[in-house]
């Protein structure tokens, strides 16, 4: 869906569901997912429908993901960090993570 205009800025290694993904400095979690061509980042807690980032400005809450073990983080507001572990969130969040 998206390509990078230029591979600028230092590469940052994160994992998404355990698989390595190369992000760039300046990426948010959500933009890193889009840049890596990842199709959806969660399924809804109501019907289990797949969702992906929609607004990228903190409004829609469709980019909720688990970041470093903490669920329901807004991916579009969180800058990537080296070694960050991102997981797609399936349905309702589990208490305690």
């Amino acid at each position: 869906m998206f390509k990078r205009l230029a591979e600028k800025g230092p590469a940052i290694s994160i994992t998404v569901d355990g698989k390595p993904v190369t992000a760039r400095a300046g990426d948010t979690v959500a933009s890193a997912l889009l840049g890596a061509g990842i199709d959806h980042c969660r399924t809804t807690p109501v019907t289990g429908a797949p969702r992906a980032p929609y607004c990228l400005m903190g409004v829609c809450f469709d980019c909720l993901v688990t970041v470093d073990g903490v669920g329901s983080r807004q991916g579009c507001l969180i800058p990537v960090r080296e070694g960050m572990k991102v997981e797609t969130q399936l349905g309702r969040r589990e208490a305690g993570r």
């Binding site: 869906m1 998206f2 390509k3 990078r4 205009l5 230029a6 600028k8 760039r24 300046g26 990426d27 948010t28 933009s31 889009l34 840049g35 990228l56």
Partner: peptide, 10 residues
């Protein structure tokens, strides 16, 4: 995505 990360639609 274009402004902040230089991501352009593909």
């Amino acid at each position: 995505a274009l402004k902040a990360q230089g991501l352009v639609v593909e």
